Simulated scan of single mutants.
Amino acid sequence: MDSLTQIVLGAAVGEAVLGRKVGNKAMLFGAIAGTIPDLDVLTRYIMDTVTATEWHRGFSHSIFFSILFAPVFGWLVWKLNSKEDASWKDWSWLMFWGLFTHPVLDAFTTWGTQLFWPFKTRLAFQSVFVIDPLYTVPFIILLILAFFQKRTSLKRARFIKLGLLISSSYLLLTVVLKGIAFGKFEKALEVQGIAYNQMNTRPAPLNTILWMANIETEEAYLMGDYSFFDSKSIAFKSYPKNHELLGSLKSHDKIKRLIQITEGWYTISEKNGQLYFNDLRFGLISMDKTDTQFAFSYKLVPNGEDLIVEDMPKFKQDAKRLMASLWLRIWGN
């Protein structure tokens, strides 16, 4: 999830664990703990694109990391707050829950997380977008209300409990909505007589009303979208796999790793003699089905025996274009 959401969750968890003893400091250090796992993004400045992508939501988002570093960070915080009525164990417990709830929340997103690192299985329920106001806004309001209460106030504890209850219930609701949307896509494929190998679904940006689907057939991938306000049948757009365009590059180590990262959901496109590796899991850069630019695309540049993989940049105008069309599409086709 986005940084603000993780800060809010970490602060709420910190308050729930240690708020009565240390007051707002529990929120502060809970928020810090909730952001630590995402420091893995710094690897993009020191590692190649493929390695940095592999590391993202890997080791730092694992149970192992939480258990290993909670007492380390807990000791540091304890030393900084030696006058507070909280022990090293107390602070370590706070840091553990701040570190651990971060990847648990990320597991509901499309990218998912390697919660059980060093095992490479990526846990991804794909039921919530990385930024979801319905999850974050009520939570942050209740957190702010709690912040201005005395540490021993019953209202303070109730606000935090309510925030955790509402946010957790919403996450469970998104799983139910995903199941309903999956059924709608499945029925549409059956009605249209489309045979397929596998399908995955995910919410469109910023909401859980509009859902997207990737469907694998023998020669191509189909993409479609469904809103709970739709009145017309679901339309699917076909995108050729073009895996053969890789040629000998398919045996290259970086390509094998990219395929593993995308779990096989990828296409290859060629523009002006240049090859691009497209990650299908996050769809197109816009709601326009005639668009061929994917949200996550990698330029493949052979360099002797090596292969340079460049992450294609994203631009503000693309986001603005997506938001405008997204708002219209949510309300039905």
Results as ranks from 00 to 15, higher is better:
Leu165Phe: 14
Gly183Arg: 07
Leu189Tyr: 05
Ile144Asp: 00
Trp75Tyr: 15
Ile194Glu: 06
Phe236Tyr: 13
Asp306Tyr: 01
Phe315Arg: 08
Ile36Phe: 04
Phe96Val: 08
Asn214Val: 04
Leu173Trp: 13
Glu310Pro: 06
Ala319Lys: 10
Val191Gln: 13
Met287Ile: 07
Ser227Lys: 04
Thr201Lys: 03
Leu9Val: 15
Ser60Leu: 13
Ser92Gly: 15
Glu219Ser: 13
Lys241Asn: 09
Gly193Trp: 07
Ile141Glu: 08
Glu263Leu: 04
His243Gly: 11
Ser231Ile: 12
Ser233Cys: 03
Ile259His: 02
Leu39Ala: 10
Met323Thr: 13
Ser233Leu: 09
Leu94His: 01
Pro313Ile: 01
Ala324Cys: 00
Ala295Gln: 12
Lys254Gly: 05
Glu218Gly: 11
Val8Met: 02
Gln114Asp: 01
Phe185Val: 06
Ala220Gly: 00
Ser168Pro: 04
Leu258Arg: 07
Leu249Met: 12
Asp318His: 09
Pro313Val: 02
Gln114Trp: 05
Phe159Val: 02
Pro103Asn: 08
Asp132Pro: 02
Arg202Gly: 06
Phe159Asp: 02
Ser153Ala: 14
Leu164Ala: 05
Phe116Val: 12
Thr49Trp: 06
His252Ser: 05
Lys120Asn: 14
Ser233Met: 11
Lys314Ile: 10
Gln317Arg: 09
Phe108Tyr: 15
Thr43Trp: 15
Arg156Glu: 03
Gly30Met: 03
Pro240Thr: 04
Lys289Asn: 08
Asn303Thr: 07
Phe65Met: 06
Thr43Pro: 01
Gly34Asp: 05
Ser87Leu: 10
Gly273Ser: 09
Arg44Glu: 12
Val13Pro: 07
Thr292Phe: 08
Leu300Val: 12
Pro37Phe: 02
Ile180Trp: 11
Thr292His: 01
Leu94Asn: 05
Gln293Leu: 14
